[in-house]
Design a protein around this nucleic acid. Structure first.
Lengths: 153, 153
DNA sequence: TTCAATTGCTTCAAGCCTAAAATATTTATC
DNA sequence: GATAAATATTTTAGGCTTGAAGCAATTGAA
């Protein structure tokens, strides 16, 4: 294996380790302190950015998970009265999912706590470092998307 | 929210997006091309670094997953003849898990393909960039560990 | 020695996740 | 208008994951 390949593999392993570690802590915190889960938080987060609601398929699209997955999470959130399914006028197959007022209020609290938590976890990273690293990741992501677009042609 | 907090949150969201995306692609590739899964790959990878085998609890320790989790994955790998459970002399509760020759051979092939895959995915990242980013991540992880150690006192 | 606490592992219940099959509805074509 | 294809969602089977409970076996303290 070439040297650059070794460096790339090492970077990948470190990325995975750091992100997995933080993600695991985040799951623990959500469970212990907010009695919820990361997938539920992700669904509510997506819905909070679309107050008018999202169709099930749009939701699985933005979250990049399967349709069946969203069905299950929506079922559970719905049982707790945090989201509701609204029929789509003119298409009886489709369903709009949106936060209830209770869900909206709960998510607002959780989102603020989440931001505080992240800020505390990344305390050792300066604004400049954060921006620099985010820019690199952004460049990488853009590059990858560009490649995909080319491949899709 | 302060500016630096915003930058940190943005960095976290990007990290999560990039790593999740790559991880998802990796899962797809493992499934389609190697008929396996990331958790199985992780178990075999850990075992390949310990040819003499690992006790179940050691394995769940290094992988940072629960004991019950490893039990299930070991069961399935064992059914396929890729790993075997060896009794530990002197402690009839414990079990050593290790790769069979077939498991070892299969993992060697998968590991090589995995490295090639990563190298291709991260093609747009130079050796210098990779080393710089890995160093930052490493510093962050070290800092976090240091903090944990202090808290544990 | 005895027996209570600890240790190592498995089992269990519940949630997450996927791909594929099933269901219902809509759209397009003849 | 009939019907075939496409679309939106749910259901299903199977694997991953956890925390907690259960079961042996080991260790340690009286």
């Amino acid at each position: 294996m070439s040297d650059v390949a070794k460096d790339r593999v090492r970077l990948w392993l470190r990325l995975l380790k750091v992100v997995r570690g933080l993600e695991q802590e985040l799951r623990d915190t959500l469970r212990r302190e907010h009695n919820t889960t990361l997938p539920r938080f992700d669904v509510m987060s997506a819905l909070s950015r679309h107050p008018e609601g999202l169709k099930m398929s749009q939701l699985s699209g933005v979250l990049r998970v399967s349709n069946g997955n969203v069905t299950g999470i929506a079922d559970r959130l719905s049982e707790e009265g945090l989201v509701e399914r609204i029929p789509v006028p003119g298409d009886r197959r489709a369903m709009m999912l949106r936060l209830t007022p209770a869900g909206s209020a709960q998510f607002a609290r959780q989102a603020q706590a989440h931001e505080d938590w992240i800020n505390e976890k990344l305390r050792g990273i300066s604004s400049e470092e954060a921006r620099a690293m985010a820019a690199r990741l952004q460049a990488f992501a853009a590059q990858t998307e560009e490649k995909e677009k080319t491949n899709a042609q």
